[in-house]
Amino acid sequence: MTGRRDVDEELRARLHEAAGAHRPDRARILARVERGMAGGDRPAHHRTTRPPLPGWARVAGATAAVAGVLAVGGYAVASAVKDDAPGRRSVAASSTPSTAPGSKAPHAPVPSRPPASAVADGPLWSDGAVDPHSNEFWAQSNVTLKTAEPLTALTVELRVAQTGGVTSTGAWRSLPEDDFAFAVGERDGFLVYRWTLKEGRTVPAGEWMFAGQYDHDRGGRNAQADRYAATATAGSGGLSVRGDFAARDDGS
């Protein structure tokens, strides 16, 4: 029985090898298999020339002949030969993509709100503007702060770009003068005004203004490069704002 199993295994391997080539006439191949299996009906003089073979050997020989036809003509008829060894069949399976074709992967979550603008930070809001009373020789730049909480520390800096002939003529603030240390001077192409709240003093909640005054060359001055910045400390923590002198709403 071992010899028969070996022949069957070899036969099945040859049939599967030739199976993928073509698809010839299935009925014609079946007929040839049947004729091969009917080898016992051959004339007697063929059987007397050599010892008779067992039936399984005749079937194997006839089917092997058909395998040669299959290799040239095309398709192996798997239904004509049963596979006696379950679990040895191979099955081709296509993998399923995790994302359907044409679809897009989910985007990262969108932040619930955009970050606060530079002109506002928590309870502190700011604005910069050129005073409307400025003229062709002189100007005043105003930094306005609004705070909803008292401030225990505050530094305000105004930077006026040196556009030609810019020279300080003074400064003021709407808070008590004695509460602040003040300095003015030129640095890196700017006329810089700085107000610093003295230790132990407090800025009450409310709206406050810091102004720098200066002469400049005759004609309308462009304040596009001017800047301001302020840092403060409130009960809610450290605060920081900054901006320019472009027109904007009043922040109310």
Rank of each mutant, 00 (worst) to 15 (best):
Asn142Arg: 13
Lys104Leu: 11
Ala60Arg: 05
Asp83Trp: 00
Arg32Phe: 00
Ala181Leu: 02
Gln162Ile: 07
Gln162Tyr: 03
Gly39Gln: 03
Gly39Tyr: 06
Ala100Thr: 12
Ala246Pro: 01
Arg173Ala: 06
Leu70His: 03
His45Ser: 08
Leu154Asp: 00
Asp6Pro: 01
Ala38Asn: 15
Ala205Ile: 03
Gln224Thr: 14
Ala64Lys: 02
Gly212Thr: 04
Met1Arg: 12
Val156Asn: 13
Asp83Gln: 03
Trp172His: 15
Pro132Met: 10
Ala118Asp: 13
Glu136Ala: 14
Gln162His: 10
Trp125Glu: 14
Gly200Pro: 12
Gly36Val: 11
Ala223Lys: 05
Thr63Met: 08
Asp217Tyr: 04
Lys82Glu: 10
Arg242Ser: 15
Gly243Thr: 12
Trp125Leu: 15
Ala247Leu: 10
Ala171Val: 01
Gly55Cys: 01
Arg187Ile: 07
Thr49Arg: 15
Arg14Trp: 04
Asp41Ala: 07
Ala27Gln: 13
Val130Thr: 14
Thr231Lys: 01
Leu191Gly: 11
Glu157Ile: 12
Thr99Gly: 08
Arg89Val: 13
Gly87Glu: 00
Thr169Gly: 02
Ala129Gln: 09
Thr169Asp: 12
Arg35Asn: 02
Asp215Phe: 03
Arg88Pro: 02
Glu17Val: 05
Trp208Leu: 01
His16Met: 08
Tyr228Phe: 15
Leu175Thr: 05
Thr2Ala: 09
Gly102Glu: 14
Val241Asn: 03
Glu9Ile: 06
Ala225Ser: 13
Ala223Arg: 06
Gly73Ser: 04
Ala93His: 04
Asp121Leu: 01
Ile29Glu: 01
Ala223Tyr: 05
Ala18Phe: 06
Trp138Lys: 04
Glu17Pro: 02
Pro111Phe: 03
Pro150Trp: 00
Gly73Met: 01
Ser98Trp: 12
Gln224Val: 10
Pro51Ser: 02
Met209Ser: 14
Gln213Val: 12
Asp25Arg: 09
Glu177Ile: 04
Ser174Pro: 02
Thr233His: 01
Leu239Lys: 01
Glu199Pro: 08
Arg221Tyr: 11
Ser79Met: 09
Ala139Arg: 14
Ala27Asp: 13
Arg32Tyr: 00
Pro111Cys: 13
Tyr193Gln: 15
Pro106His: 10
Gly185Lys: 08
His133Lys: 13
Ser95Asp: 08
Ala76Trp: 08
Gly189Ile: 08
Gly39Cys: 03
Leu154Cys: 03
